[in-house]
Design a protein around this nucleic acid. Sequence first.
DNA 1: TTTAATCATGTAAACATTGACATGTTTTTA
DNA 2: TAAAAACATGTCAATGTTTACATGATTAAA
Lengths: 180, 180
Amino acid sequence: MRTLKYAILGLLKRKPRTGYDIAKEFKAELGNFWRARHSQIYPELKRLLEEGLIEYEIEIAGETMEKKVYNLKPAGEKDLIDWLNTDEEMVPTAKDKFRLRMYFASNIKRERLIELLNSQLKQRQDKLAMLEAKMDEQDRDPEFGSKEFGDFLVLESAILREQAYVEWLERSIRRCYIAK
Amino acid sequence: MRTLKYAILGLLKRKPRTGYDIAKEFKAELGNFWRARHSQIYPELKRLLEEGLIEYEIEIAGETMEKKVYNLKPAGEKDLIDWLNTDEEMVPTAKDKFRLRMYFASNIKRERLIELLNSQLKQRQDKLAMLEAKMDEQDRDPEFGSKEFGDFLVLESAILREQAYVEWLERSIRRCYIAK
DNA sequence: TTTAATCATGTAAACATTGACATGTTTTTA
DNA sequence: TAAAAACATGTCAATGTTTACATGATTAAA
C-alpha cells in the first residue's frame, strides 16, 4: 500500500524539501490525516532514491551543516499522479481508542465516566479552536488547481470532524446525567 | 500500548466467546473504531492465556468440532477496569488515506476529482444509511451501566462521524464546481 | 555568553498489522 | 444431495510503525 511513499511524493511535488521538512509537515495541518516519524521518513527517502523516483542536492547551512534537499524526478511525479487518480474503496475502520473504550463504558462509574468525557471534550474543543483560527488566516475562495485548494479541503475536513467529535462528547455527557 | 488486548478483555467481560466470535464483533458496530483479523486475535488470546488473564473451556459443536470458549479471569477483569478508567490523551492523528489524497488535489483534473469525491460520497452515504437503520432498532434510552449504553454511545458516534464526512464531501464537490 | 530550542540525519530493536498459507467441520441453500 | 457459505483455529512472512539509541550544528533567548 505504501501510503507514506505517496505522502512524501506529494509533498515533494509542492516543493523540494529535506527529510526534516517532511517531518515538520506531519506536525502541521497534514498531520491531521497522516503522520510519520523521522525514523520512518529517512529510510523511505532512501528507498525512493534507489527506485529512481526522487533525487537530492546537498545544501550547506551555516558553516558545515549538510542538508539533503530532495526533489521529484519524472518517474516519481508519474507514480504520484497515478495514485492520486485511483478510485480507492473507503477504509472501513478509522481506529479510535477512546471510542473503543466507550463501547465498554458500562464498566465505568458514572462520575468517572463524566470526568473522562469532559477531559476529551476539553482537548477536542482546544483542537477545534486552533483549527478555526487557522481557517481565519486561510484563503476563503481558493483557485482550483492551486495548492491552497488542497489546504482548504483538508482544513475544512478537520474542522467538520472535530465539530462532530465535540457534538458527540457533549451529547454523551448529557446522556450520562439523564440516564436511569 | 496493546489496545487489542483490552478490546478482547472488554468483549469477554460482556460474555464468554471464541476467537471466531471476537473476529465477528470487529466486523459489526465495534468495527467502526477498532478492528483485528483472526491472525492477530488467536496469538493475542494465547498470550492473554499465558498471562493468566483469561481461561477457556472446550465446547463440542456438532459431532467433533472443538470450540475454545474464552472467559475473563479476575486478573483480566482488574486489568480491563484499570485501563477503562485511565484518562488518556487524545491521539493527534486518525489516519485517512482519502483526505491525505485531497491535500494533493491540485494535481487532479477537475472532472476526475469530482468523480473521486462522488465515489466516496456514495460509499459514505450507504454506510450512514446502514448505521441509521441500526439506530432505529436500538434502545433510544439505554440504562446507565447496561451494555446497551455503550452500544448507543458508539453507534451515535459513528453516525455523527459519517454525517460530518458526507457534509464535507458535499461541500467539496460544490466547491469543485464553483472554484475559478 | 551559555543554554535551550530547533535544525539535521541516521540506525536498530520491538511492536502492530496484514495477507497468504493451511486445514477441517457444520449449516444452509439451491 | 451437492455445493456454497459460514464456523472454527491456527502459523508465517512481509509490511508498517514506534521508541530508543546515536550524533552533531545552528539559531534564538535568557
